[in-house]
Design a protein around this nucleic acid. Structure first.
Length: 686
DNA sequence: GTAGGGTTAG
């Protein structure tokens, strides 16, 4: 090492030899040796290269040594100061950066472009706009107003503080822009949830014939992901391949996320598979893509799989896991994630809300409430989640009471709060409360009713049998009634035998061209209830023509932590014989207690006897029988159904809960039913 | 200057 130093000196290298030598260092030890050499040769006491020495220590994260060099330096020029400031910046000590900046000013050292850039970055990270603006004005005083580095740092400062309009003002006034300036704007708009403007600036950048690099593409891809602009996303991907822009883990992860968010899970998986290196973020992007597109099982599989690759799930990936548990009603998996977070991580607000949602959607309302009480800093979404929980469990009064408590905080209820609240009223039959708060929502809380609020209130009225009133409300709507409100009315018509109006509404719904098989099923059911079998056939034909498949009804039951799924008339199950025998036995006991099969729920033109047999084979009944057979007496059963529970099964489950003396909880696609001692928590109102 | 997470109608 010293020999090399000699070579540098004797050859009279014109570039400063300490710099060249320091650059060759691979560890702190060699830096220490050169440090000693600099002292020995007197270079150090001349103040020469001290900055480079500081920077070298900082390169290996040794801030303490960097500081020592600084403190021992006999002379400190701007480069010495900058070196130390950068050292602190690299170790994420933003406060110390600003501290040094201040000292530097006090000591009368003239800051340069680097000083301002690093200090402004510290303000951005601290989101300290006030300090940042102070530094900006000093930069102007020192003549760095039009410096492109200072300019971009200013953009970043405003972007990180959420002031994109101010950033845009500065951006437009910048005499010189570089790729970083453009990138900061694109990324800034993208991250603040203004993807349209992000894309707009990207287009302007390309019009000025500036080529993007991988970082700017990340911002663009993120914007595409959030706005759902798949065409642009695909072309961005293609652009990078064509121009051979190197793709690192960040770009590839953004691509996975963009495809996954837009439901192109095949493409997302494809990119994911080809990645040479994947981290927790890459896995999370894919997991959340599956979870958010309804592929809960795949999401959960990935949570397990990532661990076999040696990666530990973090809060973000686990929140997606919780979402998946909520969807399939897997209490066991959900609980294990809850435990994992308790043991190895720390809850934040988002994961706290996700756990609340998981417990409530997996049937455990009381656990959800316990956790809600434990969340220290609740935001609007936490409250909304808990109000929703009460709603789906049919606890309208509790939902209202929680809403009143929320009103006492400084949080303002939003459109989601009212959607949950109105839906809670609807499921509990609190019609007057619903009308009252719908009115107050507009008058006092300034929340304009949207389609979903109207759908709630129409549902509320129609469900309560006030079908005409619901119809009148639709006629009086300010906004054009969409398919959701008509569907809510239609369901009311069916449930309350208003078949004449029902037929009219059914036609209306068909005109609006639903894209949902469930809606076609409802329309067809209304025609079936009115014995219009020709129209039933016509609807089925339309569905066939547009290639829409009826979603088969299925139910799942969790037995010993494993989910078992049953389709209607599912004879394929290995335990089918036992299940059928159990159902037959129960059927006899139910009839003895007064059960009469409600064959009107079989929507085909068939013999009564055949209809009765079909009802017995509904998926929820198979799941219940399987659960009874495979769990110890007295165990609570949790059934999840992908459609609404049928009226006859609802009746039968009440009887079964009494006969077997068990609590049976059924989660259908909209809400929960808690069956116990022959009654249901919904009091037959749903 | 760069990536992933929670609530919401029928």
């Amino acid at each position: 090492m010293f020999l090399n130093a000699g070579n540098f000196i004797s050859r009279g290298v014109s570039s400063p030899w300490p710099k060249a030598l320091l650059a060759t260092c691979q560890d702190v030890k060699s830096i220490t040796q050169i440090h000693a050499l600099l002292i020995l040769t007197g270079v150090f006491s001349n103040g020469y290269s001290n900055g480079q020495l500081i920077a070298s220590y900082a390169r290996f994260g040794d801030v303490a040594s960097a500081r020592r060099v600084f403190d021992e330096s006999p002379q400190r020029g701007v480069s010495t100061w900058n070196a130390l400031i950068i050292a602190y910046s690299r170790s994420y000590s933003a406060a110390e950066v600003l501290n040094l900046y201040q000292q530097m000013i006090v000591e009368g050292i003239r800051p340069d472009s680097s000083t301002f850039t690093v200090s402004l970055k510290a303000c951005a990270n601290l989101q300290d706009l006030k300090k940042g603006e102070e530094i900006l004005s000093q930069a102007t005083d020192f003549g760095y107003k039009d410096d492109v580095f200072v300019g971009s740092s200013a953009l970043n400062l405003y972007a990180k503080c959420g002031k994109m309009d101010e950033a845009l003002r500065i951006f437009n006034g910048m005499p010189k822009k570089d790729l970083v300036s453009w990138t900061t704007m694109i990324t800034g708009f993208s991250q603040i949830g203004r993807p349209v403007e992000a894309i707009d600036i990207y287009r302007k950048m390309r019009m000025e014939e500036i080529e993007g690099d991988s970082i700017v593409m990340v911002g663009l891809i993120q914007a595409c992901a959030n706005i759902g602009d798949l065409n642009l996303g695909l072309s961005a991907h293609g652009y990078m391949i064509r121009r051979d822009i190197p793709m690192d883990v960040v770009v590839e992860t953004s691509l996975v996320d963009m495809y996954a968010k837009n439901g192109l899970l095949n493409l997302a998986s494809c990119v994911f598979e080809k990645m040479s290196y994947r981290n927790v973020v890459s896995w999370s992007a894919l997991i959340s893509g599956f979870a958010q597109n309804g592929f809960a099982r795949d999401a959960l599989k990935l949570v397990v799989e990532m661990q076999s690759f040696g990666l530990k799930p973090d809060l973000v990936s686990l929140v997606s896991g919780l979402l998946a548990c909520s969807q399939v009603g897997s209490l066991k998996f959900g609980k294990s994630i809850h435990g994992y977070i308790l043991r190895r991580l720390e809850f934040d607000r988002v994961s706290g809300t996700a756990v609340i949602d998981m417990y409530s959607k997996c049937g455990s309302l009381s656990s959800a409430r316990v956790l809600f009480n434990q969340v220290s800093s609740r935001d609007l979404i936490s409250w909304n989640a808990m109000i929703t929980s009460y709603g789906i469990h049919g606890c309208g009064e509790e939902a209202l009471s929680l809403f009143m408590q929320m009103k006492e905080t400084k949080l303002r209820p939003d459109h989601a709060t009212f959607a949950s609240l109105l839906s809670a009223f609807s499921h509990s039959g609190l019609v007057e409360e619903g009308r009252y708060w719908f009115d107050l929502m507009v008058r006092e809380f300034d929340v304009q009713p949207s389609e979903k609020h109207y759908a709630c209130i129409v549902d509320l009225l129609a469900r309560a049998g006030r079908v005409e009133e619901a119809h009148e409300l639709i006629e009086s709507m300010i906004i054009e009634p969409g398919i959701a409100v008509w569907v809510a009315l239609l369901a009311g018509c069916r449930n309350h035998g208003k078949l004449e109006l029902g037929e009219k509404v059914a036609k209306k719904v068909l005109e609006l061209k639903p894209d949902d098989a469930g809606i076609y099923a409802l329309v067809s059911n209304v025609f079936a209830a009115a014995n219009k079998w020709d129209k039933v056939a016509a609807v089925r034909k339309v569905m066939k023509q547009i290639g829409m498949k009826k979603v088969p009804g299925y139910s799942t039951v969790e037995v010993n932590g494993k989910l078992h799924a049953f389709l209607m008339e599912d004879r394929s199950h290995p335990q089918y014989e036992e299940i059928a025998a159990m159902l037959e036995k129960l059927d006899g006991e139910m009839r003895a207690l007064g059960y009469v099969p409600k064959t009107e729920f079989v929507l085909h033109e068939l013999d009564e006897e055949v209809k009765e047999r079909m009802l017995c084979n509904h998926s929820e009944r198979l799941a219940i029988a399987f659960g009874l057979l495979n769990t110890r007496p007295g165990t609570r059963l949790l059934i999840t159904k992908n459609l609404r529970v049928c009226g006859d099964c609802h009746e039968a489950t009440k009887f079964i809960s009494k006969i077997v003396n068990r609590e049976i909880i059924v989660r259908d696609v909209k809400r929960f039913h808690h069956f116990k001692d022959g009654v249901c928590s919904c009091h037959d109102y749903w």
